[in-house]
Design a protein around this nucleic acid. Structure first.
Ligand SMILES: [Mn+2]
Ligand SMILES: [Mn+2]
Ligand SMILES: [Zn+2]
Ligand SMILES: [Zn+2]
Lengths: 135, 135
DNA sequence: TTATTAAATGATAAAAATTATCATTTAAAT
DNA sequence: ATTTAAATGATAATTTTTATCATTTAATAA
């Protein structure tokens, strides 16, 4: 159980018990949908409102405390903001893995060939994870 | 005005006037949201139902006649299925450009370092387009 | 052609997802 | 301890998407 009080405040977010729990849920689960997050949160706060989940997710996104990951053929998942990274998604078991890939050579090529200035990247690779290729 | 009758049928879709119009709208506009597509379609069929748009978009996705492109901080856009390609999105003017990038070296690296078998890629690069960097 | 039929459409209701409102509570700063 | 702006929970409202169903129509074959 990590204490996210200071990090929340650094992102201009009051450190409420609900937000601390959201942060820890994201830390524990890695990537989670709104629905799953709500389910987990109800365990911890039996009277929490779904509106609180939505409001906090939106605020946390605006303040870059979390990031949204849009996946093909699935609902978005949310994660704590970390160093930029890409995602591997298994089409069999839906597992999501983080992976750090150096995209600089690609960005350079794009810059040269299209005169488009790349600021950020979003890469999702779909396929079969290690576990599923064995089973 | 391209005639999409045969191509629709190849995808097991009856060539209705509404579907032919959707296909041509996608061909003309390139990438379009559900809302914009509906607006354009109402011009051509003043009594078209929004349900028809949704049902056709979903069917066309299932039959791979079209693809969905999920963008950061924006609604999904839809496009006719083409050769796999990536997207450039301008954060100033929201313009979307197609770009073909060879990702094989990246896929190879991922396969070797993570034993994950990559089947398909989804890459969106955000930044400033040529037009916006000049203005 | 005309007849047949499964599928598509449009109108609408229903459901699901998200946001707005507001009285009450609370975190954070005095 | 007081103050206050913000957060929460309850709920309504809105938005988005899907389901239902009577009617129409595209595709096939007589
Ligand atoms: Mn991640
Ligand atoms: Mn495209
Ligand atoms: Zn798997
Ligand atoms: Zn631009």
């Amino acid at each position: 159980m990590i204490n996210y009080t200071d990090i929340l405040r650094e992102h201009n977010l009051k450190a409420t018990p609900q937000r601390l729990a959201i942060a820890n849920t994201l830390y524990t689960n890695g990537h989670i949908t709104i629905d799953s997050l709500y389910e987990v949160m109800v365990e911890k706060f039996n009277a929490i409102s779904l509106a609180t989940i939505y409001k906090n997710i939106n605020l946390m996104l605006e303040n870059s405390f979390i990031k949204e990951v849009k996946l093909p053929n699935a609902k978005s998942v949310y994660e704590l903001t970390q160093a930029p990274h890409s995602h591997l998604v298994c089409t069999k078991c839906s597992a999501i893995e983080d992976i750090t890939i150096d995209l600089n050579s690609i960005i350079d090529t794009v810059t040269k060939t299209s005169s488009f200035k790349v600021d950020s990247t979003n890469l999702v690779l779909s396929g079969i994870c290690k576990k599923c290729s064995n089973n």
